[in-house]
């Protein structure tokens, strides 16, 4: 399956992102609970893009290990303000927005791999991956 890019431009795109991710996960044969985990992560991280950077994009990238094990990688990219203190942003309950501060640390618990790259003033890229069970 090919990669799919979803534009994140307004709050409605958060709904689009989570629904698209769920159907991609379903098409790849992820079990229901993992579809929910991936849709939830998509919702959390797409909201972060809209909230902090106003716009960005999500790339949903089906991938495979050398042994043929399938996974879904989600890449959230924006050219927003960046995250000055990633360690703080990753701790439960920390928020500079109006949220509860569970977006980033909570999302990390829903996936197998989680990576943040961010440069202040340049933007942020969050990459997550979940293996098919």
């Amino acid at each position: 399956m090919e990669s799919k890019t979803i534009a994140l431009e307004d709050a409605q795109d958060i709904v689009v992102a989570r629904n698209q991710v769920r159907s991609i996960a379903a098409a790849l044969g992820f079990r229901a609970i993992d579809q929910t985990r991936l849709a939830t992560v998509a919702s959390e991280l797409a909201r972060n893009v809209i909230k902090y950077a106003q716009r960005g994009r999500l790339i949903a990238q089906p991938t495979e290990s050398a042994e043929g094990r399938q996974a879904l990688r989600l890449i959230f990219e924006d050219r927003g303000p960046g995250i000055p203190d990633i360690a703080a942003a990753m701790s439960d309950g920390f928020s500079t927005g109006r949220g509860l501060g569970f977006g980033l640390p909570g999302s990390r618990r829903l996936v197998d791999e989680f990576k943040i790259e961010s440069e202040v003033g340049r933007g942020t890229r969050v990459t997550v991956l979940r293996w098919k069970a």
Partner: peptide, 14 residues
Amino acid sequence: MQPAVAITLVELGL
């Protein structure tokens, strides 16, 4: 609440 939703909420920390 669907079971998958309950599991995900707990993992999220909510």
